[in-house]
């Protein structure tokens, strides 16, 4: 499928879009804190990916796609010059009207607290947490997606987790995971 997409097949590329669109959208949403901005960034990600898919040189396609998504998010942040938590207040992007009951492990309160804490991280640390802890990329994939070394991934992740731990209320720290 990836090979066909790289050869220029729009149908094959759209299969990849369907496979990755939720992951890309979730990274954009939690990076930007706004449903509208995340939608724009996701769409631009796939347009940009389609334009450059012929240059894909192998490896993890997901990491390659998420790298494009991260760049789109950074572009949006630079363009808007607004703090994400402002968007959180205005757009209420985390009020999911259609939650999937079987997928929910955490209470809605814990989810909201965690997502709000993630938005308070510096963008590089936020991206690192989203890619490794939320999306489940390994360090190698994350280093490709962020275009940094493995050591940088390790240190950013360490700082991000320490900061998140500080941001969470004390009563949620131990019970948040179950």
């Amino acid at each position: 499928m990836t090979a066909a997409a790289c050869a220029g097949s729009l149908a094959a590329f759209n299969q990849l879009v369907e496979l990755h669109q939720q992951g890309v959208f979730n990274v954009c949403l939690r990076m930007l804190g706004s449903t509208t901005a995340a939608e724009d960034a996701t769409q631009e990600t796939f347009f940009a990916a389609y334009r450059s898919v012929k240059g894909f040189k192998g490896g993890s396609f997901r990491a390659w796609m998420l790298r494009i998504a991260a760049n789109q998010c950074y572009d949006q942040m630079r363009g808007r010059q607004r703090h994400p938590t402002d968007w959180l207040d205005e757009d209420a992007p985390f009020a999911d009207p259609d939650p999937q009951p079987d997928a929910v492990v955490l209470s809605a309160e814990v989810v909201k607290t965690l997502e709000a804490a993630i938005l308070k991280l510096p963008p590089e640390q936020r991206l690192c947490v989203l890619l490794v802890d939320v999306q489940g990329l390994d360090y190698d994939e994350a280093s490709r997606a962020m275009e940094v070394s493995l050591g940088t991934v390790k240190s950013r992740l360490s700082r991000a987790r320490a900061r998140l731990r500080e941001l969470l209320p004390e009563d949620l720290r131990l019970k948040s995971g179950g």
Binding site: L29, G136, S176
Partner: peptide, 12 residues
Amino acid sequence: NLTAALGSLPAR
């Protein structure tokens, strides 16, 4: 616990 919770965040 934190990493377990982050890994369990429901996807939108």
